[in-house]
Write a protein that binds this DNA or RNA. Structure first.
Lengths: 346, 346
DNA sequence: CTGTTAGCGCGTTCAA
DNA sequence: TTGAACGCGCTAACAG
């Protein structure tokens, strides 16, 4: 194995000091143009690569940021990460991605690992409902490295967040269904200890109220965001004496489950029952029966998160003013809820 | 900000030496049970966290491995990463994920960044067809840190790889279409400088030959793996005087594009044209018209890759014997190619 | 403008 | 069994 060459190697070769080499390499002001070029050229010739670890140890900066998400295999989180990367990469930062698989213990371990790795900041979408009560998390807060929430946040003093207006999203989706003529609108929710799910629910409820529709809590079912539970919940809804004529789901996956169940029971979408999902996963658009969904602009969310992080590291975290950025959601209306169109065609 | 506590802090408190603390913390043999416990307890009490950076600088091991993939927002790569993580996490390793977006320049930059970050190994699916000619890549080879390919590999001496038998996959898919009664089978390929695409193509060709079907190169189109190009290619195929009665695509996304185009032209699937995709992305299963596809077992691929990596770090990379692990692909037959079933029902 | 010195936090000699 | 000293590779303070 080729010996790892350091600034000392190139210093020796040039009969100068390691400090001078360092200055030359870092484009320090106090260095002659001549030696700077000389050093840089020989460094290149010798295939010198800076040891980031040593630099990090010295400077206290690792130029690594940690990103914690429930999982990466959804377009939503993958797009957020892409946004973060696109913004951070040019600034020399690198992203370490951690998945929690919605496991609270994993999330804590991830935090500890990232802290040990001396990351310069952590951007996360929390999986842990009561994270503010956790010791490791509080240790993270105590350090003054930038911490940022995106999508799934907690309201914690001094911690910035980038989210989408979930209340508005829930309201828009429900209003749309009402506009399409739906009277009994069910809602597939998720654990409402998470703000995002609570807000979607509240938006849904408010839209009903504003339109003079009685809120019926039997029409709200709390499930996990997957196909299977979407199917089961829908089956349950359809077995009611007075089944719904629309389903607004907090997740595209549950919405897909709803679509499958409705079809298997021979119920026409959107004529007999409309469906609206959430997150605008690509499949909602390209299915034969395309599914109406809410766009949360994940790419933008990631970019904004990265920008706030950069502001914080550059200003010094202690001067940080808490930022709460809220994006406006967009409803993409597709076949699964275009009831009036469908009825008019007949 | 709370002062970062080091082994010196806890040494001072106990009136011992940092070296002793280090030994106690690392369960070194030469230490009394008494002090070991004492140290560990006070360490815990003081909320001591080892600085991985310093340890890494000292030991030359960062306990980070780099994973380079074209992109993470497909189930295929996300599952591979999950497999890698599941295997590595328990061994104390952490994964740094890099995306190339199929950009060769990005890939080179990623390699350099990971090397600077002093990763203990790199697991990659290459985006760069001629990577073996690249200087940074050769520098990587020259170091003796474990390097591993998965899925998209290059045959390089001493470099292990975990792949799926793409030839067999192409063969199986084509044989299946022939068994379903298809006579003119088109193939949506991709850049065949990549082994995976070349092998799928060769498997396709061989199956035709073995079944006495004339190979027609006009039926093979080289495109990128996305919906749009799948549609365009299909449009082109359909405009032939003698259009195909089946399409075997090297990608699920192109297969989806093919399905869309066929439908929009009113061609019945599978009766008039069968479609087979590749990678078994979740959507192939849950579409109304489910798409036949090849399972590459990405989770298993990731786990195997991680295991080989662990063997290499533990044995010392110099003793490395090159391993070429080849998984057996599985064809999932779905509606898009179940022509006999469809015809029998009439 | 350049050299000297010191230290980031840790693990590992060599002595005691 | 423990302490003292050193070095991993780099940068910053201080001199000159």
């Amino acid at each position: 194995m080729s010996h790892k060459i350091t600034i000392y190697d190139i210093a020796k070769k040039l009969n100068i000091t390691a400090a001078t080499v360092s200055r030359a390499l870092n484009n320090n002001a106090k260095i002659s143009e001549k030696t700077r070029i000389l050093v840089q050229e020989t460094a290149a010739k010798m295939n010198y690569k800076q040891n980031k670890l040593a630099q990090a140890l010295k400077s206290g900066k690792s130029y690594n940021v940690g990103v914690i998400v429930p999982r990466i295999d959804s377009n939503f989180f993958a797009s957020i990460i892409r946004g973060i990367e696109e913004e951070l990469y040019s600034q020399g930062y690198h992203v370490i991605i951690c998945q929690t698989y919605n496991n609270e213990q994993m999330e804590i371990e991830n935090i500890n690992t990232l802290l040990n790795a001396q990351v310069d900041g952590i951007l996360m979408s929390i999986s842990n409902v009561s994270i503010e009560k956790n010791a490791s998390f509080n240790r993270l807060l105590a350090k003054n490295i930038p911490l940022l929430f995106f999508d799934r946040k907690k309201n914690i003093e001094g911690v910035s967040s980038i989210t989408v207006n979930d209340f508005e999203a829930g309201y828009k989706a429900t209003q749309h269904l009402i506009d399409e003529g739906c009277k009994r609108i069910a809602h597939l929710s998720n654990d409402r200890l998470f703000e995002i799910f609570k807000d979607r629910f509240l938006g849904y409820k408010q839209a009903l109220i504003d339109n003079g529709i009685q809120f019926d809590e039997n029409l709200v079912i709390e499930i996990k965001s997957n196909i299977e539970e979407g199917r089961k919940a829908t089956k349950k809804l359809l077995s009611m004496k007075n089944p719904p004529d629309a389903i607004f789901s907090s997740s595209d996956w549950s919405a897909l489950g709803a679509v499958q169940e409705l079809k298997s029971q021979g119920i026409k979408i959107p004529e007999e029952c409309c469906v609206v999902g959430f997150s605008n996963e690509p499949f909602t658009e390209f299915m034969e029966l395309s599914i109406t969904s809410i766009d949360q602009f994940p790419l933008e969310m990631g970019k904004q998160a990265a920008k706030v992080f950069l502001e914080q590291v550059n200003n010094g975290a202690h001067i940080t003013t808490e930022k709460k950025i809220v994006l406006t959601p967009k409803l993409h209306i597709r076949k699964s809820s275009s009831r009036r169109d469908a009825l008019n065609k007949k």
